[in-house]
Amino acid sequence: METRKIIHIDMDAFYASVEQRDNPELKGRPIAVGGNKERGVVAAASYEARKFGVKSAMPSAIAARRCPGLIFVKPRFERYREVSKIIHQIFHEYTDLVEPLSLDEAYLDVTSTKIGRPSATLIAREIRQKIYERTELTASAGISYCKFLAKTASDVNKPNGLFVILPQDAQEYLRKMPIHQFHGIGKATAEKMKVAGIFTGGDLRKKSLEDLVRRFGKSGSYYFSICRGVDNRPVTPDRERKSISAERTFDHNIMKLSEVQSELDRIAEITFSRYEKTEAQGKTVTVKVKYGDFKQITKSHSLESAITEIGQLKSQLNQLATDEILRPEGIRLLGVGISNFLETQPKPAFHKQLTLKF
């Protein structure tokens, strides 16, 4: 089979960087986009704030305690979309096989390109340079033969960096890679793996497919593949997004409706932040509830038109979260989702792939 050339581009602290670019007084200062000192969650943090441990999806009150002098900035999603369009136009100068993940992140398949450049690495360098010239913003890039490794590589030299994982180097790289750095393995799963003696990709590779499926369900087959560098997912320009969601597992089961509503309010902020990063227009709101005995329910409600404001989402959640969802065993997880999306623009055409050097 032909070796693919995949690039993953990830803008550096995108929201925060746009705010610092547009307002010179914010340059070099710790800022958090979204929330405020009392409530809400952080949608994005500048690198100056990240040094203090501030990160996206963190409650604003905690962020303010961690970083004295943290400046909270109201998000301007229309402005971020404007900048994102410029960035994605650059991507399409090279290939139509662009799979947007959000306003600031995308996969590109450059196995065949519109301009005949000889290597994916050169293309990634040119893209990053053009992004800076046209937006004054920096981006990081990862290059490899599959999406999983390209995504992994883009985090290595962040911010404003580039890293390549060649096919012949992939197995050794994955063998040494700490398990918590694997994309798709969250904090809770990583801790569960460590209990099972899995600390690196090499440890994960020693486990059989049957063992991983028994321990981690259907995700086990995914873990079995990625630790071997196997990821055949195509870069899909017309990838259909079915829902946008966020959830939280609690350290202790919550028992009161007031706690439920408070947590849903916080999760709604995270969900809406992700929703705003896309062009999606959803009409259905869903609450996911997992109880202390691991039984699970969902409750949904559909609106007549698409959700456009955080207030609409929170209002629907308040109507869905009633006393009837409480149970004696308590609630260990809550989730919020937006789905039932309106139709978007026509799908781009697929282009035949040719061979290029890495």
Rank of each mutant, 00 (worst) to 15 (best):
Lys290Gly: 08
Arg239Leu: 11
Val83Pro: 00
Gly202Val: 05
Arg21Ala: 00
Gln129Trp: 08
Glu126Asn: 12
Ile310Tyr: 02
Val230Pro: 01
Thr200Val: 10
His8Ile: 04
His301Ile: 15
Gly311Ile: 02
Leu26Met: 06
Asp169His: 15
Val18Gln: 01
Tyr94Leu: 07
Glu93Gln: 09
Gly69Ala: 10
Leu108Met: 15
Pro167His: 03
Ile325Gln: 10
Val195Asp: 05
Ser305Ala: 11
Glu329Trp: 05
Asp10Ser: 09
Glu133Phe: 05
Asp265Ala: 11
Phe72Gly: 05
Val164Leu: 14
Ile9Leu: 13
Ala32Gly: 09
Ala32Tyr: 07
Asn23Glu: 04
Ala321Ser: 12
Pro237Tyr: 02
Ser273Phe: 06
Leu334Gly: 01
Ser154Phe: 00
Arg214Asn: 13
Glu304Tyr: 04
Glu259Gly: 11
Ser60Ile: 03
Gly201Met: 00
Thr236Pro: 08
Lys277Glu: 15
Val289Pro: 04
Gly35Asn: 09
Met255Leu: 14
Ala49Asn: 01
Tyr275Ala: 05
Arg241Val: 11
Gly311Trp: 00
Lys158Tyr: 02
Ile165Tyr: 09
Tyr132Asp: 08
Glu304Lys: 11
Gln312Asp: 12
Ile90Asp: 05
Ser221Phe: 13
Glu105Val: 04
Ser46His: 08
Leu70Ala: 01
Val110Asn: 00
Arg65Tyr: 04
Gly116Pro: 12
Glu324Thr: 13
Pro234Tyr: 04
Val195Pro: 01
Ile127Asn: 05
Thr152Arg: 06
Glu247Gly: 15
Ile9Trp: 07
His180Cys: 08
Lys207Ser: 03
Pro178Lys: 10
Gly201Trp: 02
Tyr107His: 11
Glu259Asn: 08
Leu264Tyr: 06
Ala139His: 01
Arg81Ile: 06
Gln261Ser: 04
Leu303Pro: 07
Lys256Ser: 13
Arg79Thr: 14
Val195Ala: 12
Arg175Ile: 09
Gly201Cys: 01
Thr113Asp: 03
Tyr80Cys: 01
Arg21Lys: 14
Asp265Phe: 08
Leu70Glu: 01
Val164Glu: 10
